[in-house]
Amino acid sequence: MNLTLKIWRQKNKNDKGRLETYQVSNISPDSSFLEMLDVLNEQLINEGKEPVAFDHDCREGICGMCSLYINGEAHGPDRGVTTCQLHMRKFKDGDTIYIEPWRSAAFPVIKDLVVDRSAFDRIMAAGGFVSVNTSGNTQDANNIPIPKDDADKAFDAATCIGCGACVATCKNGSAMLFVSAKVSQFALLPQGKVEATRRVHNMVKQMDEEGFGNCSNTGACEVECPKGISLENIARMNREYLKASIISEDEE
């Protein structure tokens, strides 16, 4: 396959950035999208030019490191996959492909296609945990039975890989799907319920401080999420949040 690539190049966070055009040829349709970028980079290095920086690590769709807004869609045109699992057979010979970084005020560009998603870590640090020490002296794992459905739903929410596609794709740049997945996971489990009120309050507060936009329920995040995290989680978080706002005795 021969392709024309329009790639966002930006030297660092202070640079203005621009789209630049590159040609790659003889790309195997069986190679992955990132392997296609590897070929481009090899080519650029051999030409004495600076290769394109992009985030990636596990290349099997689980670490959440890869990103990329490809031809107007987060993680490209395929569904239920991350960019590293996207294969070139989804494109046609001669295609022009636009490759841009996630766009969000909360995800500033570090270089080229690499963005800073540490806002997610700060939201997690605000409440994305159960406050137990790792003593090993907790009660036996089977002491509290958990209904299978709850455990399964908690698991489904917990499969979020924190890639940020939801933010990237949301017209408002909202992080509700990400935050709600974590809030839901714990809200569904007895171990997490104990501090559910505090958790949802603190996580939402941090989310707002990070500069993410608001949820207007377009549902785009659910469609583009590579892990199929459900909108149900957002509703659950809203419910938890309302509950927290009404019953909380805290000043906040």
């Binding site: 789209l19 766009r103 794709t169 017209k171 909202s174 549902g219 785009a220 469609v223 583009e224």
Partner: peptide, 24 residues
């Protein structure tokens, strides 16, 4: 707030692929 959340727009965007025009 939402406009502020995305100061730089996408050069190419296909929102129709994942949501309805009216919802947006």
């Amino acid at each position: 707030e939402n406009k502020k959340a995305r100061p730089v727009k996408y050069a190419v965007n296909k929102p129709a692929a994942n949501s309805s025009w009216f919802s947006r």
